[in-house]
Amino acid sequence: MAIIGQLFVNGLIAGSIYALVASGFSLIYATNRFLHLAHGTTVAVGAYLLFALFSVLGIPFFVSALVAIILTGLFGLLMNRAIYSPLRKRKASNIVLLIASLALLSLTENIIMLIAGPGVKSIGWLPTKTGIHIGGAIITPLQIAIIVISVVLMILLYLFMKKTKLGRDMRAVADNKELASIAGINPIRISDYSFMIGSAIAGVAGILIGLEQNLFPTMGVMLIIKGFTGAVIGGMTSVPGAVVGSYIVGVIENLGILWLPSGYKDAIAFALLFVFILWKPTGLFGFNKGVKDA
């Protein structure tokens, strides 16, 4: 029984990270309607920026973290401005945009590898602390912090989308781009903001991962697959749906270890992705109907 508790807790921790990845991804998808797979390496960019600022240059941690988040947001904006906007101006198909995002993913990954080297890095801000026992499961303070930070961030994002003008404009564009632009909302501005905000959230994810695990240049691929799977389960265009979907992915892949060897952890997420795309592309909550024609 204790093992189930532990796996569940592990699932929640993983799910929190995936939720941060998926919410940014889904925000970008909802307002731009194409798959920005390079969002995965945006997370890696955030983590490596923290490593460079804090571990290499020795800038105080919280300053480094803040700068890393801002720079990651700007990195997202740069990708949109330099690559996606010109392609969309040319009315490139979604497949072209998807291929461009794969190229960006590979490009960023390899630039990181070139600068930082292929080996693993660790931030080493917090010493590894012994965990706290909660109902048979062990959880470290950092892991609690990860869950709390991501939940708080999700609530803030939700409030931002509901209460602010920019958030409401974003939802309007997500809902109906033509109508929104008739109503005087500039879709290009919204697109830029969605990339900035989504990427900044990815930067937070990168920092949290960096504190808990080692960094390696190709870390983004796995993260985007998990985040994307979460988003698909949640219904792609719904940010709250993507968050719930991500926790489902985190918990299922960790509980799956009860029956399968631990090497299959990633395969479980892939299988979930494949099954959902084939049989339930509208996601669990039925958002984004008509995706088959998208």
Binding site: L35, V232, L273, I277
Partner: peptide
């Protein structure tokens, strides 16, 4: 066979 666009690519 029933998928199109983004979803086909991702599948």
């Amino acid at each position: 066979r029933k998928l199109k666009g983004d979803y086909l690519a991702m599948a």
